[in-house]
Design a protein around this nucleic acid. Structure first.
Lengths: 232, 232
DNA sequence: CCTAACATACTGGTATGTCAGTTGTCAATC
DNA sequence: GATTGACAACTGACATACCAGTATGTTAGG
């Protein structure tokens, strides 16, 4: 059911609601901690409460919402600790996945990635556009690796996390700080894939996720400092 | 919402149905590939279709069932390939978890585990009873480690897999083959926890999961051989 | 005997109504 | 002024009814 098949049959309302709701959450149109209700959502999306309930069940599984019976449903608050846990899992899985993918990547996959990287290199674009391409490229690289690693469970686990990470990045990360290192990191991964070098791919991915983990840890420190400041 | 809190409030019907349905699946009372229907299940458990649907959503997330719209719902067929993927993920996560747990385990946790291991050692029990205790002990050891590893996401991922693994073991594994090595393996893990030895715990767990992986791979080979035989 | 149109039974998807539990309000009470 | 408790508003849990899509058996036509 995962790993988007070439083209989908007609989506059910549940799926449609799920997609829209999920997008509203990860793009922060629905804010962390915000209270929603099945009925209001039903009116908002102009469907009945049934598909809303089903969609919320799926979001519950991704832990993007929190349901308290008889009280309400809230958008899962951001938790840097939780994101740190997620990134730690990625740290354990993704280097292996990258290594496996290096041995399985096809020319077609490499070509698709190469197009994005060429856009990145030519430069001359304004900052926002560069960041956007970087974001898309990074995403594509990761998802390509998940898909190619030959282990569908790894794909599932990592795929399910993508919303959480994306939401955190949008909410907390000042893009300007992180662009340069990130670009070098993912480029190194791409190069390793091109050379079908398992070890190099593993190391490059390890480096990359370490970078993300370091960023998260720094954010946690900043948050702690802010909280202490508030008290003092 | 995970990590069973000390005592639960009144369960919702959905939770109750989920528990019963899940148990019926992992104990093979509902057989892999068997077709079920929301309405029949509703009659069987004497509830309406609503809680059945919610429960099925949860089982869908664990991939214990497969839902085809307008066609039916079937119990997820056993797939050794899939289990192999699952065990590979465990191979990447559990050694780390065991190492982390070794540094966090409390005397209370050790005492609880020790009780089980003492039962195993004294012997003099019939085979079935020994296997049962071994099974329980193994389960407790793993879940203790997941809980103690300090990373809730690792816990969640591994916890979600427990049904799939259990079902496969029940369906495919001839217990007599596997008892002795498994006992030594988990005992080594326990010892490492007792000594709070991170590296030893990691290695012992690696060994243990390797053993399981080897078992699965052997089962796959046997299945292939059987299929080829059928053709020849 | 085969094929294709059709009738039928069954499925999950969806809409809607009801219910019991929770929460916040606000007046009665101390 | 603080505490309490009745009450109204709102929530998700659950029941029920209906719908549209799918599979399958049946039959008319060749």
């Amino acid at each position: 059911m995962n790993r988007a098949g070439s083209f989908e049959m007609a989506k059910t309302l549940t799926e449609e609601v799920y997609d829209r709701l999920r997008d509203d959450i990860v793009t922060l149109r629905l804010k962390p901690g915000e209270k929603v209700s099945e009925e209001r959502l039903a009116r908002r999306y102009e469907v009945s409460r049934a598909p809303i309930r089903d969609a919320i069940q799926k979001l519950l599984q991704e832990e993007l919402v929190l349901v308290k019976p008889q009280v309400g449903t809230i958008i899962m608050p951001l938790s840097l600790i939780r994101i740190k846990d997620v990134v730690e899992v990625r740290m354990l899985l993704e280097p292996y996945a990258a290594g496996a993918a290096a041995e399985r990547v096809t020319d077609h996959d490499l070509e698709a990635l190469d197009q994005n990287f060429r856009q990145l290199e030519q430069g001359g674009l304004d900052r926002n556009r560069t960041d956007e391409i970087l974001f898309v490229t990074d995403n594509m690289l990761h998802q390509t690796i998940w898909r190619l690693c030959g282990n569908n469970e790894i794909y599932n686990v990592l795929y399910n996390y993508r919303g959480l990470v994306q939401r955190t990045v949008l909410a907390k990360v000042n893009p300007s700080k992180r662009v340069a290192p990130s670009r070098d990191e993912i480029f190194a991964i791409f190069k390793a894939l091109q050379m079908r070098d398992r070890d190099a791919a593993r190391r490059a991915m390890q480096e990359h996720v370490s970078g993300i983990l370091g960023l998260i840890e720094q954010l946690i420190r900043e948050e702690d400092a802010f909280l202490l400041e508030g008290v003092g």
